[in-house]
Amino acid sequence: MYYQEKKSIVNIISTLLIYGIYYWIVYNKYGNLTMSADEELQFWGKTMLLIIPIAIAGKIIVHIIFSITNRLVTSEKQPAFEDERDRIIALTSTRNAFMVFGFGFLGALGVIAYGMPLRSMFIFMIVAGVLSDVFDNLSQLYFHRKGI
């Protein structure tokens, strides 16, 4: 298995772990609170903004640990640059991820349109965001293995 393939798998696992743990903590801490509509909007704004630096920091740490471990175990060097195939794979995978998020966003709007609680819309959007990230890495894994 090549470096890029292993990296995609590590990215999928780290995304699921980071977002899973974060929202599990948020749910346990604030899941039973009753809020007004304004307070709930502020709560979701803060919750979704806070995950951005946490996810970035988490992924950097995971990437460093993965690079060191992979080098020690397999002696395989991290590719020094991205060539044309890597860029095409990254672009195509990003397109797929945007499509997934786009459907998720439409679903979130649909949830609001059907009169479901505000909370459902934000949960729908978060799930779509996580799924799009997972789909991005799954696409990369697929294109690296099967060709593009």
């Binding site: 090549y2 890029q4 590719p79 640059f81 060539d83 044309e84 195939r85 890597d86 690296h144 099967k146 060709g147 593009i148």
Partner: peptide
């Protein structure tokens, strides 16, 4: 040619068609 070995492997196996420049 300025690419990674993985790209050469993919081209040889017919899993990737290179750009005209490459």
């Amino acid at each position: 040619v300025g690419v990674t070995r993985q790209t050469i492997v993919a081209i040889e196996k017919g899993k990737y068609s290179p750009s005209l420049e490459l």
